[in-house]
Structures are given as C-alpha cells and as structure tokens.
Write a protein that binds this DNA or RNA. Sequence first.
DNA 1: GGCCACCGTCACATAATTGTAATAAAACCG
DNA 2: CGGTTTTATTACAATTATGTGACGGTGGCC
Lengths: 237, 237
Amino acid sequence: MMRPKILLVEDDASLVELISYNLEKEGFDVIRTDDGEEALVLAQEDKPDLVILDWMIANLSGIEVCRRLRRAPATANLPIVMLTARAEEADRIRGLETGADDYVTKPFSPRELVARVRAVLRRLRPALSGGNLDYAGISMDTSAHKVTRDGVTVSLGPTEFRLLRHFLEHPGRVFSREQLLDAVWGRDVYVEQRTVDVHIRRLRKAVNATDNDKELPDVIRTVRSAGYALDAAPVPV
Amino acid sequence: MMRPKILLVEDDASLVELISYNLEKEGFDVIRTDDGEEALVLAQEDKPDLVILDWMIANLSGIEVCRRLRRAPATANLPIVMLTARAEEADRIRGLETGADDYVTKPFSPRELVARVRAVLRRLRPALSGGNLDYAGISMDTSAHKVTRDGVTVSLGPTEFRLLRHFLEHPGRVFSREQLLDAVWGRDVYVEQRTVDVHIRRLRKAVNATDNDKELPDVIRTVRSAGYALDAAPVPV
DNA sequence: GGCCACCGTCACATAATTGTAATAAAACCG
DNA sequence: CGGTTTTATTACAATTATGTGACGGTGGCC
C-alpha cells in the first residue's frame, strides 16, 4: 500500500518539524513549503494526496491558496485541511466555505491532526487507507489486490487494476485520456493517448466477461470527445 | 435538485430545535430522533444523505451507533458528523477513528455546524451542492457529462452538450449565432452561421423528446433576427 | 535459452458526429 | 395577399473518434 503524500504549507519551523514527524511516523510522506506561490506549484507538480494549509503564510494567504487550488481543474478535488490560529467562528466558516475539507485551530494536538487527516483521506481516497472500494457490483480489495464482480473473481493486469481503482475512487466521473495517463500511468511517462483505449478495452473485457460465453452489461461508459467513466447505469441503445 | 436529507440524532430538545431550524433554513430536510436504536432504523429506511450524531443519546451511545452504521453495508458510506460535549483529545480521536467524517464539540455555533455539514456533503455528493447546472427541469452534471430532463436521461452529442452547457450557464439570455459560434465552437473556427440552426435543432430534438411519441414543451426560444435563448416558460398560446 | 505475462503501438474496421446545401415552412411587412 | 426575410427540417457525404485484433518488445522466472 502506497504511502499517501501530504503537502504541508506552514511557516513556523518548529510546527513543521512537529507535524512532519508525526505524519511520517504514521506512514505519510511529507513535502514542505512555507510559501503560498510555491505551494500552488508543488500541488500541481507533485500531486500530493492532501494539503495541510496554514492560514498565515508568505506571499499568499492560506485562504487565497485554497481558493486557487479549487479553481484549477487539476487540483479542484485535492483534499485540504486548514490550520490556523484564528478561532473566530466567522473565519472557520469562511475557511470551510472556500472549499477546505476540515479546519483545525491552534493549538492542536498532533495526534488529532493526524486523525483528521486520516478521516478526510478515508473518505476521499479510500484506496490509500487500504479500504475496500465498491460500486456498481464491483468490489475491490485494495490491500489484497483482488477484484470481484457480483461476487465472481475478476483477474486484471497491473495497469488495468490501477485504472479500475482510479475509476472506483471517482465513480461516475468522466476522465480524459490525458487525465487518466496522469493519474494511472504517472506524470512523467510518455505514452500515446490511444494506449488508454487499449487498456480500457482490456479492462472491459476482463470486467464484463463471464465463465460462459455471455457478457455482463458494460460498466465503462465512453464519452465521445471527452473520455471514459465508470458508470452504474450504462446508456441503453 | 432535491433538498439533502439530514438525520439528526440528539436528545437535548432545545438543541434539536436550534439545529433543525438552522438546517431547514439553509435548505436541508431534517429527520429527528433521540434514540440510538431508532437512529439505525431510520438510517436504513429513510436513506438520509448525512447523519448528525450526538455522543450521548439513549439506548446506544453515539459512537456505538457510528460503529454499527459503518458495519452495515447499506450505510457504510453514510457521512457522519459527531456532535458532543466531550472535548478531550482522546475522545475526538476515537470519534474520528471510528469512522466519523467530522467532529464538532459543544458549544458550537449553528452556522459552523451547517458549514461543516456542507463541507462534508460537497465532497461526497457533488450533485447536491455544486458542479452541476440546473434550469427549467434540465440538470447537467458537468463532471459526469450527464444530462437529465425531469429526471429522465437525455443523450447529446459533444457539440449539443457544449451548446446546452453554455445556455445553462446563462439561462434566459439571448445569443446571436455569432456569439454562439464564438462561445461554443471557438473563436478561430470557420463555420457557417446556419450550422448553429442545425445544432439547435438537434439539441431541441434530444431535450424535448420522450420515450413515447409525444414531445415536451420546447425549452429553447427562437428570437427572430436575434438568436436563441434557453427559457423556462415559453409563451403559452 | 525458452516460456509467460504484460505492455505500448500500429493499422484497419466500425461507429458517431459534423458541416453544408437544398427545400419547406413561418414570420414579417407593406 | 404577394413578396421578402428568417428559421426549420431533412438528407448526405466528409470527417473524426473509438473499437479491436495483431505484433514485437521487455523483463521475470525456471
């Protein structure tokens, strides 16, 4: 199971130490910065699984960073935990409404922060915490690397597995070939976009197959000129 | 576009009032109970979109309710916000680790509670709080690339989809063919203005069609010598 | 080395969508 | 009403996107 990657945006050096230490001890990788602009760049390029964001940081306020992260398509769904000394209600609400997923006020205990990070991730990226993913009759045990459909075991190659996992983490949502290459293959790999088609084909074949010669309804929806999505109710022709 | 349904499990009658009032004012439907066993039944049967769960309630402790909700497949993914007087760290962590999505300690402000409820729902049910466009019975989920009219799925080609999205982003407003070409096709594409008519026709056909041979009222208004607009109430004769 | 599973790419088949032109129908105007 | 302008509708051929099978390559493993 992969170690989730956390981007920590905080300018108090001693806090950075404290938080990093606790996160790493609990199985997270931590990237650090104390600069708002740099945080945006890191969020784009390193694709962390979650951001811990202090309100008071250099160059851009935390809340502004939050807003920009939400606005950029690539990071619009990145989980954000705001971290701040501001305990006033209005600020907390403002933080949450800007798109933060949780909000922790200083002083806080490192253990509670870790617990909240876990709670957010468990929700948004169940695969990271070794949970099971279920959708449309498909069940994936991410830690055992096993997949079933309607109880029947499905066998997948490594790439098909990661592809399906990505779909299961965001059921119903359409992903372009480019997005899929980023998320499933990795950002620095160069492969043809059409390669995605081939793996979609392989995934479909595996997931829709039965032991006899019949086929189950297709769970992957092709969205012409947009990409593919995992879908419970495929469009009838 | 349904009002999200909240199950409120709380035994302090005045708090129930306070919370219900605020939630309903903010567009939620609220189901209430003060009993742990009953909460489990209601969660199963009424299928709420989120549960607000007090720690101290009759019959079963809140945390036990939480555990059982998580264990039952039907409610394993139901978002839970814990609500409690216990501010001790160990308790908060226990709450989060049991599977709560958020944890609010008394005393709290109703507005903050509502903001947290929204933050959790925004994550889990994007359809309920954003990312999709609604107008005149038409609902478009932009991230899933799905369109429904009065709940019935509408299937559109790529261009019709973009065209409808543009109309939904500016409901009621009239656009000339030139403006539509700019916005939907792109500034640097050369196509005949009349092409817009054809796509309007295709969009109308798809959106107004029913499964039988009847037709729904037209949602697109032709404005002679000006262009087209999406309109809720076409002029009756 | 030989076997096997998997991968990425290509070439071709198939299917969906597109823009245009031709024609019919409406709306407008004196 | 006749003439004119604007929009609706239909059919079609070109274009584009996706589906699919095959192939060569790579690396693990015995």
